[in-house]
């Protein structure tokens, strides 16, 4: 076996994993997510998102159960504004697997989270980020910067 065989094998595996991820994303996730691990996965989102503040992307407190494009004061893409999506475990799983494919025109131009377990974990974390939760204090005083 030479390096090219190894390389081909690697990319074939990667391709299969991507395909499996895409197929799985169309099914209701049967993977039980772990919110603690999901918090670590969520760290990757923090260039654009925060639980409590609108940044490049909208804030995530209360995202599960919320209609897409509905955070007050956030300037959504036309595609997201028009989308008739309610964020649930299923729709988040589908969106996060490949945002640009699931919702063409989304401003979340990102290849997605191909690993179903990581998606389940981050969704578990987002489910815990209810508006009344400790992570999302309703009276959070976090304002600044012009």
């Amino acid at each position: 076996m030479n390096i090219h065989d190894v390389s081909r094998g690697f990319f074939a595996c990667a391709f299969l994993l991507q395909c499996c991820g895409a197929i799985a994303a169309n099914q209701p996730s049967e993977i039980k997510g772990d919110a603690k691990s999901g918090e670590q996965v969520y760290a990757r989102c923090m260039a654009c998102h925060s639980l409590t503040e609108n940044r490049i992307g909208p804030k995530h407190c209360g995202v599960v159960g919320r209609r897409a494009g509905a955070v007050p004061g956030f300037d959504y893409s036309p595609a997201m504004r028009r989308a008739k999506i309610v964020w649930s475990e299923k729709t988040l799983n589908q969106f996060l697997a490949d945002p640009m494919k699931y919702l063409p025109g989304t401003a979340m131009v990102f290849a997605g989270v191909p690993d179903p377990k990581e998606r389940a974990d981050v969704i578990a974390w987002l489910k815990e980020a209810r508006p009344e939760s400790a992570a999302c204090p309703a009276n959070a005083k976090r304002r600044h910067r012009g």
């Binding site: 760290a43 990757r44 989102c45 260039a47 503040e53 940044r55 976090r142 600044h144 910067r145």
Partner: peptide, 27 residues
């Protein structure tokens, strides 16, 4: 821009905040 400035009490807080943004940027 809205940042959690009320949580930035010392140098480590600022560094941790910046590190979080940079990690997010990498991703």
């Amino acid at each position: 821009y809205t940042f959690p400035t009320d949580k930035l009490k010392n140098q480590a807080d600022v560094l941790r905040f910046a590190a979080g943004l940079e990690q997010g940027a990498v991703s």
